[in-house]
Simulated scan of single mutants.
Amino acid sequence: MDVAGKVAIVTGGAGGIGAAIARRLVAADAKVLIVDLDADRVAATAEEINAAHPGTVASAGGDASDSATIAEWIAQAESTFGPVALYFANAGIGGAPGLDLSDEQWDQVIDINLLAHVRAARALVPAWEERGEGYFVSTASAAGLLTQIGSAGYSVTKHAAVGFAEWMSITYGDKGIRTSCLCPMGVDTKLLHPDEGAEDAIGKLMQSAVETAGRVLTPEQVADDVLAAIADERFLILPHPEVLDMYRHKGADYDRWLSGMRRYQKSLLDAVNG
């Protein structure tokens, strides 16, 4: 898809990958509604982008997993810029490590990392089918193709996000609706480096696993790959190409891969524990 002249919504757009995608979109002559739970921060990001590209970005606060909020965002984008052609389901959370997630925390991570995608697609796909065009971009993670050491909630929901994106592509790909799934490893965002830091042993393990698995990319590097994939209408976006080799090794011998991951986890634990 050529994004020039198109209208997009980007969730988690106050910073990180979401803000970087928004900047790349407006540089390519798209119009963007950036949304985030932090309304003040996303408004400041919109103001900064509009200073360089006047009139290209609007902003809104709200919960990306709430159906009513998603409907409001779509209405705002359409009244401000026109019909929404692209939706970036980019908002995500990590969650507590191991089996320490309460039922309420499981509900939250499933809502944000998976059901937010489902609810956005439910709101957008009927109109996209009528127009014969639409583009859904799911921010999953390499954890959705491999796994995430330490974090059950993150790993499980990112696997589910990949599965939903696959289903979207299969179900609607012949109807003019394209789907891409972004699966990076380490990216220099607040999700990797939360303000409070990782104080517990398993939290440190999770952070160490990401930082030692490969290069930590900037959000701008990832956004460049996202826009290139949209231009090519390519499903899998791998800013870390080595993920594909890891994925092939996993599928070729699952038990060997699991054994290797256990050894890797032990080495990380030994390093964390000194």
Rank of each mutant, 00 (worst) to 15 (best):
L191Q: 07
Q108I: 07
T56V: 05
V226F: 09
V125P: 14
A77H: 01
Q148H: 15
K266W: 03
G13S: 04
M261N: 14
G153I: 03
G55C: 03
L244R: 03
K190H: 09
I70E: 00
A198C: 14
D188A: 09
A22P: 12
V10K: 00
R262D: 13
A30H: 05
D224I: 09
F88S: 04
D111M: 06
L238E: 04
S67W: 05
I49Q: 08
V35Q: 03
G95M: 06
P184G: 07
S180N: 10
T147Y: 15
G18F: 00
L25A: 04
S138T: 15
L258C: 14
P97Y: 11
D36H: 03
A60L: 09
K266S: 06
S208N: 11
V10Y: 00
Y135P: 07
P219C: 04
I149E: 11
L182K: 08
G251K: 13
F235W: 10
D232I: 07
A20F: 03
A223P: 00
E78P: 12
I112V: 12
P184Q: 08
S65W: 02
I170D: 08
A91N: 00
V187L: 05
G55N: 04
A152D: 14
G197H: 01
I110G: 02
A52V: 10
H53M: 08
P97A: 13
L124C: 14
G186K: 05
M1G: 07
V210F: 11
S155I: 07
Y172R: 01
T212W: 08
P83Y: 10
A229P: 05
T218R: 02
E199P: 09
E196S: 12
A77I: 00
N90C: 05
R248H: 10
D245M: 10
W128S: 12
A85F: 09
A68T: 10
D232T: 07
T218L: 11
Y135K: 02
E104Y: 00
G150C: 15
A68P: 06
T45R: 11
G62A: 01
I21H: 01
G98M: 15
S138G: 14
A140P: 11
V26M: 04
E130R: 12
D270L: 00
V35K: 00
S79Q: 14
V26Q: 01
H117F: 04
G260H: 11
I170W: 04
G173V: 02
V222K: 04
G163Q: 01
L191R: 00
L192T: 06
Y247C: 09
A64H: 01
L101T: 07
W128A: 03
K31E: 13
Q105K: 06
Q105G: 12
S141I: 09
V109D: 01
A271S: 06
T147E: 15
D107P: 04
F88P: 03
E166R: 14
T45A: 13
K250N: 04
L101K: 03
L244M: 13
D111L: 09
D225R: 12
A75F: 09
A198R: 15
I74W: 07
I177Q: 07
E133R: 12
A165D: 13
T179I: 10
A140R: 07
D100P: 02
S138R: 13
I17H: 00
A60Q: 12
T147Q: 15
D195H: 10
A252K: 13
G16F: 02
L146N: 02
A143V: 12
G13N: 02
I110K: 03
